[in-house]
Design a protein around this nucleic acid. Sequence first.
DNA 1: TTAGAAACCGCAATTATATTGCGCAACTTT
DNA 2: AAAGTTGCGCAATATAATTGCGGTTTCTAA
Lengths: 165, 165
Amino acid sequence: MPTRRVKLDRIDRRILDDLQENGRMTNVDLARRAGISAPPCLRRVRALEEAGFIRGYHADIAPELLGYELTVFALIGLSSQAKADLQKFEQLVESWPEVRECHMLAGEADFLLKVVAENWDAYKTFVDERLTAAPNVNHVKTMQVLQTTKHRPGVPIDVDAVDEE
Amino acid sequence: MPTRRVKLDRIDRRILDDLQENGRMTNVDLARRAGISAPPCLRRVRALEEAGFIRGYHADIAPELLGYELTVFALIGLSSQAKADLQKFEQLVESWPEVRECHMLAGEADFLLKVVAENWDAYKTFVDERLTAAPNVNHVKTMQVLQTTKHRPGVPIDVDAVDEE
DNA sequence: TTAGAAACCGCAATTATATTGCGCAACTTT
DNA sequence: AAAGTTGCGCAATATAATTGCGGTTTCTAA
């Protein structure tokens, strides 16, 4: 059984940072920028994927061009917070394609949903026929996104951080 | 000046859907799945990128493994909503690496921020020394994410939708 | 400290992809 | 129907991704 590096060194951080910024960068470029040759670079990427540091790669698609003019964050309150009821709700959410993200929250509300819709009408239909119609949903507070002024992928990665351990 | 296809056909939608799901899929696979040969598939991808349908590609990094144990959504209210003041705030936000997303909202609050931090302590420092210290910030309502139960990239793409136009 | 193991690196060879240059067919536009 | 346009696929070429190995540095533990 091969030992698995737990601590990331400067090179790993550089790779993660580059891939977070440009997920389709070639391994050759990745290697050049990281200062090592292609083979070990590829091996590192594979290792980072297998160790779970990299959960996947995704193209960032423009919602408006695909017909989604409206983005909304909705705070959801449930009537019951029993484990089974929460899971029931999560399951339901999973089946709704217009809901892109679902975060369980502490205090205030129970869930924060990010929803995309063609327009306000489609959103209203979603709320009326899906959300409100769902059992256990107590209240829905809608917050319309007027403009997203910053959206960086994932996490900040300090490439120059001092290696620990 | 080359004409640019505006309407997406089934093949384009398939490509977008596949790349949204797996941003590092090879062009060969993309082509195979779309039912066309590699060259035209690559040309379509380039066209989709240039037309802005694809804004970029990003690796999805696991926050916890990078030391970010805490994710928070914060609702921010400003004292002044004058255009200049809003922009001032957005600029500030841009410079804070722990803020990954900033959405301007209608009603309720002025902005919704998604923030990642090593721990609660680091977040508190962020709020005290950056957010609250910033001019024009009136109030901050923090919502801690306990668990993200769904996070799909971007938008729903119905590959089988009927072509319009 | 020192032999052996472990973790990594880079070179060189091989396989797979990405890219380009064209000619062809379908579809429009006069 | 001639001419222009758009998009496809084949074939050739240029790049990239992978694999197999030998060599080096770093640990480990006797």
